[in-house]
Each structure stands twice: as C-alpha cells, then as structure tokens.
C-alpha cells in the first residue's frame, strides 16, 4: 500500500517536472509512450496471461477514438461535418473524461459480441476473428460517410489529452491489470494459458475466463484510442490498422510475459524510433529507424527468447526496501 503511494507520488512528480520543463514535442513523445504502455499492458491480458492471440486492439482503439471524438466535438461543427448524426448525439458535447470512458465501454461491448461466439472454439480462431473484426470496423467507418466523414476522417479534434490524463489512465490500467492478475481471475487465466483441459477439469469456465480478459483489454484499448484521438487531433479509418496490431505484439514479445515486460517493451519501441530520428535526419538515410528496430528485435529474440523481463515482475516493496526508502 505504502509502496503504491510512493510510486504514485514519484510518477506524479516526474510528470509535473516534465510538464514544467519539456517542450511541446518531448511532452508529446512522453504522452505517446504512456498510451503505448496502456495498450501493451491491456493487450498482455489476453496475449501474455491467457494465451489468447488477439490482434483486435486497433479495432477497439478505432471504436474508442471515433466515439469519444464524436462525443467531445462541438455541436456547431457537427452540424456541418456529420449531418446524419441522430439528434441527441448532434446536440451533445460531453466532458473529455466521460467521452473517453464511454468510448472504452462501447469498445468493450463490441469485444463481448465478437468474443462470445469465437472464444468457445479452441485454437487460433481468435487471431483470425479479430483481424476480421478490424477489417469490418474499418470498412464501416470508411462507408458511414455522414457519421464518420468516411476516408477523410475527423479532424480538428480538440487536443484535450495532456500528460495528466495519460498519467491517470496509465496508473488505472496498470493497477487494474495487476489486481486482476493477483486474484482468482488472474490465476484462472494463467491456468488456461498453461493447459486448457486441466484448467477446465478444475472447474474453470473456459468461455468466461477467456472472455473476461478480452473485454477488459478492449475497454482499455478503447480508452487509449480516445486519448490518441485527442492527442493527434485527426483520425482516419487507416490510423488503426494491422501494422499497429503487430507493433503492439512486438512490444509484448521483446518485453516478456509480465506487466513489467509489457511496460518495458512499450517504452523501448516508443523511445527507439524517436531517439534514432535525429540520426536519420542527419544522415539522410530515411528508413534507418525501421531497420535498427528490426535488428534490435532479432537480437533480443536470439539472446533472450522470453523477452527482456521474461515472466518476472518488479516487486515494488522489495525495490523500495533495497533503496532504504521503506523498512
């Protein structure tokens, strides 16, 4: 408990210092890192802890992003840009926080709808079904012109996302996933990952405990989508597609099968491309970042096939004890 409060305060202090000292660009990079952490940790629920290979995160993000963007959009501009909105939506303008949560909830609902039939099957059906779902979401957004502005996407979204919103949602995500993992639910998920038949024989409902992490992960993906939309300020159907899904999977692979691993993976992937950018600009060798990232990925896979953190977690209590801040 005390360790948790310490961490909150330290992270808050870091955020405050960054808000005060960093320029707009570096602050944006930090905010994207936070969003990556939310995405990676929530994807770890299915992909790392339950052994389900989901590629659906971009679809859930797209749902969260579009819903929250429509909800926070000023009604005057909605009338011009999205004429087919139902009346109650057209005149509504919600606070950012609420819009993001609603986006997350609707993303979670959609995960429930596709997860329910698919997760009763055994095998790799989820990967295929989530790719399919992503395509359906994209096609729908592309063709519902009068609601979503089609391929042009929504632009001019107010940049509500700041470092504090990202900080809050990172804390909420990591805390929730950590609590889930160390509960009855988490142990059931891990049991399913290790051996489905053994888990079922112990009375674990496979469908329920597979559906739960997918839906919870989709909620946080929807939230991350909302934060993303209000940071980039423009979204199109192609903003959330397969390359992003693979990027998230890569984060989990290089990080390892733990919350710590997911965070490390997200930070590494996010930082490396920004760090290499000045080099790319100076040498005029565009494409360098992608090559270096790929080589680094291969090196990690060869040296540490389980990911950098493996399945270990950082124990905050013993960390503080060793630093002598806590007795």
């Amino acid at each position: 408990m005390i360790a948790g409060i310490y961490t909150l305060v330290i992270l808050g202090g870091i955020s405050y210092t960054m808000e005060r000292t960093l320029n707009d660009y570096h602050l944006t990079v930090v905010e994207f890192l936070g969003i990556y952490v939310i995405l990676a940790v929530s994807l770890a629920l299915t992909n790392s802890f339950t052994g389900l290979f989901s590629l659906g995160h971009p679809a859930f993000m797209a749902i969260g992003a579009y819903i929250s963007a429509i909800l926070t959009f000023p009604p005057i501009r909605k009338a011009i840009m999205m004429p087919a909105l139902p009346h109650f939506l057209a005149n509504m303008q919600l606070p950012f926080c609420l819009a993001v949560i609603i986006g997350g909830v609707i993303a979670a609902l959609s995960a429930f709808i596709i997860g329910f039939p698919v997760l009763r099957l055994r095998g790799h059906y989820l990967a295929v079904a989530t790719i399919g779902f992503m395509i359906i979401v994209q096609v729908l957004i592309t063709n519902m012109n009068s609601l979503t502005r089609g391929p042009l996407g929504i632009n001019g979204i107010y940049p509500y996302t700041d470092i504090w919103w990202v900080y809050i949602w990172v804390v909420v995500t990591v805390y929730t996933v950590w609590r889930v993992l160390n509960s009855r639910f988490g142990r059931a998920m891990l049991a399913i990952r290790e051996d489905e038949i053994a888990a079922e024989s112990l009375g674990i409902s496979l469908t329920y405990f597979k559906l739960f992490p997918l839906v919870l992960g989709a909620f946080f993906a929807g939230v991350a989508g909302g934060l993303w939309a209000h940071l980039v300020t423009a979204i199109t159907p192609s903003s959330f597609s397969l390359p992003l899904a693979f990027l998230l999977v890569v984060m989990l692979v290089i990080g390892g099968k733990s919350i710590t691993g997911a965070i490390i993976g997200a930070l590494l992937i996010g930082i490396v491309s920004e760090l290499l950018r000045p080099l790319e600009m100076a040498t005029q060798m565009y494409g360098l970042t992608q090559i270096v990232t790929a080589i680094g990925l291969l090196a990690i896979l060869i040296k540490k096939p389980g990911g950098i953190a493996g399945s270990k977690e950082i124990n905050l209590v013993s960390l503080y004890k060793s630093l002598k801040v806590l007795r």
Partner: peptide
C-alpha cells in the same frame, strides 16, 4: 523528417519541427 505514412508520426514530427 520522415513520417512513415503514419498520422501519429505526423503529429509528433510537426511538434518537433515547431520546437
């Protein structure tokens, strides 16, 4: 700056140029 056919990169790169 190469923005990799990716809107997220556009938004960060624009801020980088401006700063």
């Amino acid at each position: 700056i190469d923005t990799k056919t990716n809107q997220k990169e556009c938004a960060t790169a624009a801020r980088q140029l401006l700063s």
